[in-house]
Simulated assay, not measured.
Amino acid sequence: MRTLYSIPLTFNDGSEADFGRFEGKAVLVVNVASKCGYTRQYAGLEELYGKYREDGLEVLGVPCNQFGGQEPGADEEIAEFCERNFGVSFPLTSKANVLGKEQHPLFAELTRDESGQPVKVKWNFEKFVINRDGELVARFPSAVEPDAQELVDAVEKALS
């Protein structure tokens, strides 16, 4: 398994880096969409980011249009929507696939089970918690809100 830190990322402003920019931090990776029933979770994600950012938490939003066409906008439109409606200040990547042949390498790694088999992302706003050592330590379905105790506990543990 290749390390998460070597996976390339393109951010919604066109800048490029690899996941290694988050080395030493806990990261909450979320596939997001602007026209989803869970879109309001952006507010909770921003609140979580604000609460734990100084402790070393990063939230990384990965816009995806693979579930019901719920993220049709261009990268610039997505960023503007997120900032205007939810005050999002955490980083967003450019739009990416989380399923299929063109699956982003980050999601190829995050969705492997212990035997190396893929476990598909089921919908928008699925959440992946990565600890400071770059290890996936928890995964939560879309319905788990950003302020749910089980998610907060996983984030706090990833930060420790």
Rank of each mutant, 00 (worst) to 15 (best):
G69L: 04
T93V: 14
T93P: 08
L106I: 07
F90Q: 03
A74K: 14
G68V: 05
G100P: 09
K95G: 04
E77L: 07
E102R: 12
L99I: 12
N97A: 13
E83V: 12
F90D: 01
A79Q: 03
G68R: 04
V88N: 01
G73Q: 12
G69R: 07
E80M: 09
F81G: 01
G87D: 04
P105F: 01
G68A: 07
K101R: 15
F67R: 00
K101M: 12
Q103P: 09
G87V: 10
K95E: 08
N97E: 15
F81Y: 15
F86A: 07
G73W: 01
V98Q: 00
F90N: 04
A96S: 10
G68K: 02
A96W: 05
I78V: 14
I78Q: 02
G87Q: 08
F86S: 07
L92G: 00
G100I: 13
G69Q: 07
G68H: 03
A79E: 04
F81H: 10
D75R: 09
V88H: 01
E83M: 07
E83D: 08
F67Y: 01
A79K: 06
E77W: 06
A74G: 14
A96R: 05
C82K: 02
P105M: 05
S94R: 13
E83A: 11
D75P: 14
F67E: 01
S94G: 14
G100V: 12
S89P: 06
L106T: 01
T93W: 00
N85R: 13
S94I: 08
G87L: 07
V98D: 03
V88I: 09
D75W: 09
G100N: 13
S89N: 08
Q70M: 06
F67P: 01
K101E: 15
A79S: 12
G69H: 04
L92P: 00
A79T: 05
F86H: 14
P91H: 03
S94M: 09
E102Q: 13
F90A: 05
A74T: 15
D75I: 09
G100Q: 12
H104F: 10
L106E: 00
A79L: 11
G69A: 04
L106N: 00
A79D: 02
